[in-house]
Design a protein around this nucleic acid. Structure first.
Lengths: 352, 352
DNA sequence: GTGAAAGCGCTAACAT
DNA sequence: ATGTTAGCGCTTTCAC
């Protein structure tokens, strides 16, 4: 194309590059721009990148692309980095640390300018890898707690503590919490919030119980709730790590005819779009997915362009969205029969 | 690294490349592999691509990254192409043809090996662009109907026709259909299915009505439903282009106290994960998102590796999932008062 | 203000 | 079986 324009390639390169076009006479610039436009020419980023050692790509990794929680996050990250001309690689780690590691290596090979990882475990070796390779990286939602990595997440601990406070305020005396696998910071933080809640003054004399799930989905919530019921559930309020587990719990309760919130209250976390549409509508913590993604992308771009910003750990305040799945603790038999809520040991035969 | 191994770069290149390693003595190969492993070396894909004119990247474009419909599609496409070593660029067109065009140009500049586009309009100029540039491209869900582009989608026409047939079988005599903007093949196909349904023998004497939405979300469904109610709705069954619009319709009905399905039946399309959890649970057409993505990616890979496969237009059979949002047409006043269903002209003051 | 030339890291055609 | 050389398309010194 330079030859078509009758100039040398380097001139064309300079003319087309905002950073160096001032070194070229404005008439040549406009001529080259015209020809380029006309030929539909634009520089080959592979070649530029090879030469400059900089790319216009970023990588985004989430633990599960099908989870509706990540839709807005992917959307907002992609949108934000695109504004600065970056194009986004997306991949799913499927909650597997070794897969995350391999994805990061693949993306590093592509010389991504930066990474947004929403899939770190606590002390994740993948985080070390990012740092060692010197790739600007932002941890989203899940913070590996690496001294050199900035993170952006919801203030889950405060959020869940507030949830416990609210539940206790409703008069519940026995509260269970279904936590996700504790490998992730989110799980640790929410558990910490639950534990903090259990130490509140108003928690005096209350019973608390924690169950660790093995997955994050509705089926797992259903399975756990059924097991809990079969084992003689004492709690009158079940807090769940996320909305999906909560939905599973609701499904399980419905299937054995236990009414929510009259008999058992249930809460989730994330406020997925459908949370308000359930029956009963789900009380939950709101998760500002879009904002998280935006800010995460913003921070990443600062990291890429500015070099080394100080490490930050940004927490977005979480707030409770009170809906219909929580209500006052059931009055009867609460104190004199601590198995009050265990309606049937075998809810429906063969179903557990 | 070649120097570290004491061999020439080209030897190293050959040894590390499965396609040419047989030309190298197995001892040198293993030595080079050892050193490479030890140094954590792997070839720079930017440089390889520049030389070979082939990349290991594919592009995936959807109209809305936040829509839960696309989660499984993104997941399955990414997963499938990753199995063949491809890494995936993802972007959202936001339903804007010009944005799709620009995204495709950006991806083309990156020399993507292929494209999966779930965002084409009918006769979309972006489709011509893909073909002109000779980029292997698969149309997912939305078929631009370009003679040279293969597509994979649900058989929406048959699906919606079956839905109409089912609704008529329930005795409904006035049926409305809320279509999405008609620029997309999905909208055209579902409308065609609705029209075909309206010509069924059992449709004799029935009334049909079509309303075109301007968006695809819950809010739009709610808005439209409220408008319809305000305008004196005759229909006792409302078919909606997708689940989100249907949910909006349900919300609107609930807000004015019209019971579903007793007074009005509602259906969606896509069978999003929460469809079964609504009250009433939504009757809808099932969308095999994961399979669509898998097959689309599979087809793309064939296209990339094999060169020119014949153009195909694959339709997955769609099937009705009957749930609680549909029921028999209300008996009373059906024939003698064609405004039977119009409960309030102004459902709630100031809300329309 | 523009051209010449080198080189980013790799692969492939051509030697030997 | 391996080394040599050229060149993918670009940017960036260095020269003038």
């Amino acid at each position: 194309m330079a030859t078509k324009a009758g100039v040398h390639v380097s001139t064309a390169s300079r003319a087309l590059n905002p950073k160096s076009e001032h070194r070229i006479s404005s008439k040549t610039v406009s001529k080259i721009e015209r020809i380029a436009e006309q030929l539909g020419y634009s520089a080959n980023p592979l070649a530029s990148s090879l030469r400059t050692q900089r790319t216009g790509t970023v990588g985004l990794v989430v633990p599960n692309l099908s989870d509706p929680l990540f839709g807005p996050i992917i959307a907002s990250v992609q949108e934000r980095v695109a504004r600065d001309g970056y194009i986004t690689f997306v991949a799913s780690s499927d909650y597997k640390p070794e897969k995350l590691l391999s994805i990061i290596q693949t993306m590093a090979r592509q010389h991504v300018a930066g990474l947004v990882i929403a899939s770190f475990d606590l002390n994740d070796p993948a985080a070390d890898l990012c740092v060692e390779m010197g790739i600007p990286t932002v941890a989203l939602l899940r913070d590996p707690r690496h001294p050199d990595l900035s993170s952006i997440a919801m203030d889950d601990e405060k959020g869940v503590e507030a949830l416990v406070d609210y539940i206790l305020g409703l008069g519940h005396k026995a509260v269970a919490y279904i936590t996700a696998p504790l490998a992730a910071s989110t799980a640790q933080n929410r558990l910490a919030g639950f534990v903090a809640g259990s130490k509140l003054p108003k928690a005096a004399g209350c019973k608390f119980e924690v169950i660790e799930s093995q997955a994050y989905d509705i089926e797992e919530g259903e399975r756990i709730m059924k097991t809990m019921l079969a084992n003689g559930l004492e709690a009158t309020a079940i807090l769940c790590f996320n909305d999906l587990l909560a939905v599973g719990a609701l499904v399980a309760l419905k299937s054995v005819g236990i009414s929510c919130p009259e008999r058992i209250s249930v809460t989730g976390v994330n406020d997925l779009p459908f949370a308000a549409l359930l029956t009963p509508p789900l009380t939950t913590l709101h998760n500002a997915g879009r904002r998280l993604g935006q800010e995460g992308a913003e921070l990443l771009i600062r990291l890429i362009e500015k070099g080394d910003c100080p490490v930050e750990h940004i927490l977005f305040p979480s707030h409770i969205v009170i809906r219909g799945s929580t209500g006052p603790a059931p009055k009867a038999r609460q104190s004199d029969d601590n198995r009050a809520t265990k309606v049937r040991r075998k809810p429906t035969s063969g179903k557990i």
